[in-house]
Structure formats: structure tokens, C-alpha cells
């Protein structure tokens, strides 16, 4: 049981470090662009990177994303680091098939496409707060109910995690002998059962509180249309077509 807690605390620590990555304090041009426009721009970058296997086109998108990041004063190292894990993973995934088909180009282009599209998404994530993303989605006609649920999920994850952690710690406090992996699985899933029961109770209380305060969640923001951002992406897209 203590192993479960230790491993979980460790992995959750690194997970939660990213949780607030959006809570930026600085403002750059990109931070100010309307989240819906930025989301569409990001989709454009991703579509452009994954609709081709031509190295030069993929490199064009990759360069455009990083130039954009650099130009707006973002830490390019962080962007690359956050995007590289899946790219490396993808390289390893396609390694066997590339060897089998003796296709070195594919071994490069496939992970490069993944890297370019993840970089585009990470650029969006690094310059948009979570509530802004939801505002953007709402403006793009994603049903409000879904948006509200996503917001509450985000809002309560940390407090639910703290609850879960203390339930696990309480069970660990009552452990008086060494336990096997199976016993940890058993005890742990019982703890999860207790945790979910409490979550239902908590949800009822939160619902009452929300009824008392009003149910409407408002996502607001004042953004610029992002004329130069749109222009930039149009330019890159035209170039992509011409290559």
C-alpha cells in the first residue's frame, strides 16, 4: 500500500506541475488572440502537418510553429521538450516497419509529422488558459452543458485528488503487516469505492451550493481577432501548397 501511495504521489506531482502551466502571467500577442481563432489556427497547423509525407512541407510547418513561438517570446525549449516525448515514442513504434520495408524516409517523416502536430497543440496550450480554451470551444458551438462539465472536472480534480490521497493514507495507517501486490490491489480498489461514495455525497453538496449561488458558469474574455495571426497562417498555408 505504501508503494501505491509513494508512486502515485510521485507521478501526480509531475502531472500537477503541468496543471497550472496555463496560469501565465506574461502577455504576448499570441496570448491575446481570441481562443476560437487560435484553436482554428492550431487545427490548420495540425492538418497541414499530417496531410503530407513530404519532408519539406513538414519542415515548413515545424519551422512556422517554432518561429511563431520564438517571435512571441515563448520558451522554445519548453515547447520542444513538451512535444518530444510522443515523437520519440512514435519513432520507436515505426522503427520495425521501416526496417522491414527498408524505408528510412518513413522512419523520419512519420515521427516528424507527429512532432509538428504536437508542437502546434502545445503552442496553443502554452498560450491559452484552460478557461479561455473552454470559452473558445463555447464560441465554436460546443454544447454549453459539456463545457460546464469539463470546467467543473478541471475545477475539482485537485480537491478530489487530495481526498483520495487521504483515504489511501488512512488505509495505510491501518495496515499492520506486509501486503502483496494483490492485497494492495484489493485494498486500493476498496479505497476507491469509498472515495467514489464520498464523491457522490460531495457532488450533492456542491449541487446544493450551486443552486444557492446560481447555476450559470460564465466564461468571459476580451480578445483581439488576431488579424496578423490569421495572416501568418494563411501565408504559411499558401506556401505549403506551393511547395
Amino acid at each position: 500500500m505504501h508503494l501505491l501511495i509513494e508512486k502515485t504521489v510521485k507521478s501526480a506531482t509531475s502531472y500537477f506541475q503541468d496543471f497550472f502551466i496555463h496560469e501565465y502571467s506574461r502577455k504576448t500577442y499570441l496570448h491575446d488572440v481570441h481562443p476560437s481563432i487560435k484553436l482554428l489556427g492550431t487545427l490548420a497547423f495540425i492538418i497541414l502537418s499530417i496531410s503530407t509525407f513530404q519532408v519539406k512541407k513538414i519542415l515548413l510547418i515545424l519551422a512556422s510553429v517554432y518561429v511563431l513561438a520564438l517571435n512571441t517570446g515563448l520558451d522554445v525549449g519548453v515547447l520542444a521538450k513538451r512535444s518530444s516525448l510522443f515523437a520519440i515514442f512514435s519513432f520507436l513504434i515505426v522503427l520495425p516497419v521501416s526496417v522491414f520495408e527498408r524505408d528510412v524516409v518513413y522512419l523520419i517523416t512519420f515521427p516528424l509529422r507527429v512532432f509538428a502536430s504536437i508542437s502546434s497543440l502545445q503552442l496553443f496550450i502554452l498560450t491559452t488558459r484552460f478557461s479561455e480554451i473552454l470559452y473558445g470551444l463555447k464560441k465554436l458551438r460546443i454544447p454549453g452543458m459539456m463545457i460546464d462539465i469539463i470546467w467543473l472536472t478541471y475545477r475539482y480534480t485537485i480537491s478530489m485528488f487530495r481526498d483520495l490521497l487521504s483515504i489511501l493514507v488512512a488505509r495505510e495507517a491501518r495496515r499492520l503487516k506486509k501486503t502483496s501486490h494483490i492485497e494492495t490491489l484489493k485494498g486500493g480498489s476498496k479505497s476507491l469505492g469509498l472515495f467514489l461514495l464520498r464523491s457522490f455525497e460531495k457532488a450533492e453538496e456542491i449541487e446544493l451550493a450551486m443552486n444557492a449561488r446560481g447555476r450559470k458558469i460564465s466564461y468571459r474574455g476580451k480578445y483581439r481577432a488576431g488579424f496578423f495571426y490569421i495572416l501568418y497562417i494563411s501565408g504559411v498555408a499558401t506556401w505549403w501548397m506551393m511547395l
Partner: peptide
């Protein structure tokens, strides 16, 4: 909505 938000957060946790 609150119930689903909180339970989703619990599943996420």
C-alpha cells in the same frame, strides 16, 4: 451538471 463534473473529477483523480 455538478454531479457529472465532480464524478468526472473523481475518475480523473
Amino acid at each position: 451538471v455538478p454531479l457529472l463534473g465532480v464524478i468526472s473529477a473523481a475518475i480523473f483523480a
